[in-house]
Write a protein that binds this DNA or RNA. Structure first.
Lengths: 169, 169
DNA sequence: CGCAGCTGGTTACATCTGAAACTTTCTTCT
DNA sequence: AGAAGAAAGTTTCAGATGTAACCAGCTGCG
């Protein structure tokens, strides 16, 4: 599709040329993420009536129970309000159980109910299936490298963010 | 921080193991994109009072004027409503000019005003600067490969999406 | 020509989202 | 022990977002 020539001698990043939105990494990242999110979100809403935040909670609790809301925020990288609301939804549908936390009266121990576990057993393979479809025809080494990239980007962004990127101008 | 062992022999994708949110690509992608978006969005709001959609319009129009709203939707991969609102904001601030389109009475030819151009001249280098910071210490070849990846993912998602991913189970 | 249907753009509405304020419980310091 | 401050969770409010209805101008076919 693209007429972009294959660049052998890669352009140094510091000496960058004109801005082209189409080649701008944050843009590409955002667009790709959106497309993927949309796809999966729709699938989960259709099949299970789960929103993305709800889905994430289930995913985390399915592999590691029980957890407090706080812990869930950390694992899912979501706001506490978002987690709260997702939790509420799952509680109403009796997919989640909420038990008092002996160690701390402010928080609760959250885990999947039997029904929740059953749903998780369907949800997880489907998730993996989607991942496999998206990555069809990619060797696992490459994929692993990509994931590393994404982690690094996230960290770099976080670092810049609370270093107050203002400093860097 | 993480106790995750370094995996030398990567697990094949098809024979996938349990779902681990932390290694789940759509999740990683979403989280990385969010972190990066947040960082940049904040910067642009602080410095220029621009939202992300507004920023995107300026970026596109800065490299290619004039365009119709429709065309902008295509280039920015944004909803027409989103484009409309961004446009409105820029018009109010006189960063954008809107001229009748001789070829079609329904649409308009949008381009940057002189003020808009001037802002673009500040905006673009800053954008590139951020990109450079995020990618600090990465060689351009790798970066290029990453961008290819992101494009492929986006396409794959789009394909699955309108193939009605239901078919794929 | 003129009506049916389409397309660019706009508006209205319902939802989602996150920041900030608030409540309760825990922790620390004297 | 008691007061000050921090942390977990909840509620509230304002802003952003997207879907669907809507209007106006274009296109194509009888």
């Amino acid at each position: 599709m693209s007429s972009r020539p294959i660049i052998i001698a890669p352009t140094p990043l510091s000496t960058q040329r004109r801005l082209r939105l189409d080649d701008y990494l944050p843009y590409r990242l955002s667009v790709a993420a959106n497309a993927v999110s949309q796809l999966i979100a729709r699938a989960y809403v259709d099949r299970f009536g789960l929103t993305v935040p709800q889905w994430r909670l289930m995913a985390v609790l399915g592999e590691n129970s029980p957890l407090t809301q706080q812990a869930l925020c950390g694992r899912t990288v979501m706001d506490k309000v978002t987690v709260m609301r997702a939790e509420r939804g799952l509680l109403q549908r009796r997919l989640l159980r909420r038990q008092p936390n002996a160690a701390d009266g402010r928080s609760h121990r959250l885990s999947l109910t039997a029904t929740g576990e059953r749903m998780y057993a369907e949800v997880a393979p489907l998730a993996l299936k989607y991942e496999a479809l998206l990555l069809a025809g990619s060797d696992a080494l490459e994929v692993h490298r990509l994931e590393q990239w994404l982690r690094r980007l996230q960290q770099a962004a976080a670092a810049l963010s609370d270093a107050g990127a203002g400093a860097a101008l």
